[in-house]
Simulated scan of single mutants.
Amino acid sequence: MRSRGHTAAAPLVTGASAKAGTGATGRADDWRSFARLVAVIVGWSIPYVTVTSMVSLHAERDLEQSTAAGAAVLSTYTAAGAVGTLLGGWVGDRYGRMTSVRVGYLVALPALFGIAWAPAFPVLVLSAAVFGVAMFLPFAAQVTLAQDYLPNRPGTASGLSLGLAMAAGGLCSPAFGRLADTSGLPAVFSALLAVFVVPVVMAVRLPERTRSAPDAPSPPLVEAVQPHEAR
């Protein structure tokens, strides 16, 4: 009911209503770059999981080492991954996350070659350690990059980037296991090198996407109030 001597207040216009129809961040999702990143992550996952499952067998069968030596090289490889995760965060903070992505992939490729063609056990251990560090240098950067490619769907971006990093390699493991049974471990590592070239080339060409500055606050809301009517 309208109060006597007053008129209805004018409708208020807020900054939020002025932006109706835009995403929560005011930025568009870059699906093309995200699809490229997904392909890179799948290419990362395949060699990571396969090396994890076969590097100890490689030491025992191809380099004629003991079971303990095979376990040692696997432990070195997994521990190096933890170091690479921490180092990748530091590199990303200091030099930019694309530096950690590009350096990680470019170093991992020759390290995988060293694993495949190691002439002696110490070379295999060193190559496995370098490969473990290099593979996890870009790990955290890839997750944040996925979120920036899809700023309006951060949950989808995080779930796909983390889920595919573990699942894609596991899905391909039976095929590489079959290849190892029929053609031997050298054939497996040669196939991994061929597969890994693709994500390396794609990773060094991924575009950076920085977060934009927050929008300026909306101007204060002012109600238009009519003066009292004289009585």
Rank of each mutant, 00 (worst) to 15 (best):
V143S: 09
L162K: 05
L179S: 09
Y95S: 13
Q142W: 11
L171N: 01
A180V: 01
Y149M: 10
T182D: 13
I115Y: 12
D148N: 14
L86D: 01
V107P: 07
V130D: 01
L86Y: 14
V198D: 04
A116P: 02
F121L: 11
F176T: 03
S158V: 13
A203E: 06
G177E: 12
L137W: 01
A187P: 08
A180I: 02
A165C: 04
V201E: 06
C172H: 00
S100A: 15
L145C: 05
P138E: 05
I115H: 12
L87F: 11
G177T: 14
A175C: 01
P154A: 12
L171S: 12
V125T: 10
A129C: 11
L86T: 13
G88M: 07
M166H: 11
G159P: 03
V107G: 02
P186G: 11
L164T: 04
A203D: 04
G184V: 03
L160D: 06
P199F: 09
P174K: 11
L160N: 00
G184T: 04
S183E: 13
A168L: 11
A134S: 15
V133M: 12
P110A: 04
M202S: 13
T144F: 12
G177P: 06
G89V: 03
A111C: 11
Q142S: 14
F121D: 06
P110C: 09
A168Q: 08
V125K: 02
A165F: 15
A168P: 10
R178Y: 09
V204M: 04
F121H: 11
Q147F: 07
G104R: 07
T182G: 13
A108K: 08
V200T: 15
L171T: 11
G89K: 06
V204S: 09
W117S: 11
G155H: 12
V103E: 02
V130F: 03
G177I: 00
R97N: 10
S190Q: 14
A111Q: 13
R153C: 01
M98W: 02
F131Q: 03
V143F: 08
L150P: 06
S183Q: 14
I115D: 05
L150E: 06
A146G: 15
G114W: 02
P110V: 06
A108S: 14
F196I: 00
L162E: 01
L162Q: 13
L137M: 01
V91G: 04
A116G: 14
M135W: 08
Q142H: 15
A146P: 12
A191V: 01
V130H: 04
V103D: 03
V133W: 02
L164D: 10
L162H: 05
A157N: 10
G177N: 12
A141G: 08
A180K: 06
L185D: 05
S183C: 07
S161G: 08
S158P: 05
A187Y: 10
F136C: 00
G163W: 11
A165R: 00
A194S: 10
L145Y: 04
R153F: 07
L124Y: 09
R94E: 06
L179D: 01
F196G: 01
V188T: 09
V204E: 03
